[in-house]
Design a binder for these strands. Structure first.
Lengths: 106, 106
DNA sequence: TTTGGTTGGTACGATAATCGTACATATATT
DNA sequence: AATATATGTACGATTATCGTACCAACCAAA
């Protein structure tokens, strides 16, 4: 899989995860919807500046959008695993964790 | 400072740190030297794919190339706070937390 | 079923950016 | 000074993107 295809997939996955339509995203980022469509299908390049904007809007890291991870579980699968781990922690530590998560970059 | 200027500065800094001339870098990445020159002066866009290639060649992270300094400073402060919380947790829960943090946006 | 709304893919001319080469400038080394 | 190395820049040819419009698929309400 090429870098561009990888990025295209990540951008689409991140947008869906954040519950936005292509049109929503396009309006917020002041882009045209066809640009989003073509970027997500790998037909069009994405600039570094756009990656920064997408990462902010979709609330993912720029490195997640750009990097290929070797042992890769799908993001939603990882969230499920994290949720399971979270529920197995005792309450005081879970509170601390949530406090930590609150102050981390959104 | 605009995103593009920030990226331009980082790319130049990273290249110099890795001891490469613009021509060296251009040859290895199969780009034309003027492209590197113009990218590093912010006159030309950088694609996401190029960011990946630059990061590999210069041995820096893509996020370092893309993130603004003030974000990193804020992030470091938050990490310190988080570390204080972490140190009060027992080891098994700390491991679970780190696993969760691993998949969250950096 | 039909209508209307939403979403996403695509065509295409106008516009803008990049490519590739050549030349210019700058700095260091001998 | 002379040469080499590194970087900046000009510019026509080429390529990509923009902006708009149109189209198909899907779905829910009438």
């Amino acid at each position: 899989m090429s870098d561009r295809e990888q990025i295209a997939e990540r951008l689409k996955e991140a947008r869906i995860m954040s519950g936005l339509s292509q049109e929503n995203a396009a309006k917020i980022l002041q882009m045209h919807r066809p640009a989003i469509s073509e970027i997500e299908s790998g037909k069009r390049k994405v600039s570094a500046e756009e990656i920064i904007q997408f990462a902010k809007l979709y609330k993912v890291s720029t490195s997640w959008l750009l990097l290929k991870e070797e042992d890769e579980t799908a993001f939603d699968e990882q969230i499920k695993i994290a949720a399971r781990e979270l529920s197995s922690m005792d309450e005081s530590d879970r509170k601390k964790l949530l406090e930590i998560l609150r102050i981390l970059p959104k």
